[in-house]
């Protein structure tokens, strides 16, 4: 299938979600409060409040998922835009809370600083039809205990899921998931990881404009 470009459509659809999210919460002001101390990092499994966009993707050329110990190859998955709690949006270099979606670690493209919105890549296996297989309506979506994602393996993921369930974490509301899937639209077919990254960077510009510099870094002119 020929990859298609859906950025403009995606951007237009996203505007509604952005407006809605902005009404829910104001800017956190991390970038505007340069001397603020780091907030304490929660140790409980929680933190994901909503999903604003869910975009399935398929790649012609797989990449390595470096955000878990097994480092699996990724040919398909979802780009998610999540709305998260403030303590998880402040970058830190000590261990951060790891973001889980279902039985997978998610790769955060941004932190959600000042916007509360995180663009994340979630690898998923491909079904017989070649599309990513991930039931977002059933998947637990949460921040687990602080750790370096590259040290998280399947056993740790299972442990984190159990802890999350014990703390009352459940799937996101089905209606919100359906709405996010509708916002995301059809599966996008992209050439490779670099193209996917640039796709995600556009979402950062739209959903998390305070992190525009990060997105612009991902969108630097290619010289290859």
């Amino acid at each position: 299938m020929k990859p298609k470009t859906t950025l403009l459509t995606l951007s237009a659809l996203a505007l509604t979600a952005i407006a809605g999210a902005a009404a829910l919460r104001g800017p956190l002001g991390w970038f505007q409060a340069p001397n603020a101390p780091l907030p304490a990092l929660p140790v409980q499994a929680l933190g994901v409040r909503d999903v604003l966009l869910a975009q399935p993707f398929v790649l012609d050329e797989p990449y390595v998922h470096t955000w878990r110990a097994e480092q699996p190859g990724v040919s398909a998955g979802y780009v998610l835009v999540l709305e998260v709690e403030e303590p998880f949006t402040i970058p830190r270099n000590t261990a951060e809370s790891v973001l889980y979606v279902g039985d997978q670690t998610a790769e955060r493209i941004n932190w959600g600083t000042d916007s509360g919105r995180v663009v994340a890549l979630v690898p998923a296996p491909q079904g017989a039809d070649g599309l990513p297989v991930l039931d977002l309506a059933q998947a637990l979506c949460f921040y687990g205990r602080p750790e370096l994602p590259e040290r998280v393996d399947a056993a740790r993921i299972a442990e984190e899921q159990a802890l999350a369930v014990a703390q009352g974490v459940g799937p996101l509301p089905a209606a919100r998931v359906a709405e996010a899937l509708a916002t995301g639209g059809e599966v996008v077919h992209l050439a490779d990881r670099t193209t996917l990254e640039r796709y995600a960077a556009e979402l950062v510009l739209e959903y998390a404009p305070a992190e525009a510099e990060l997105a612009q870094g991902l969108l630097a002119p290619l010289v290859r």
């Binding site: 670099t194 630097a220 002119p221 290619l222 010289v223």
Partner: peptide, 10 residues
């Protein structure tokens, strides 16, 4: 500012 691809922004 340029990029050689994934994690090759320089």
């Amino acid at each position: 500012l340029y990029s050689g691809g994934t994690f090759l922004g320089q």
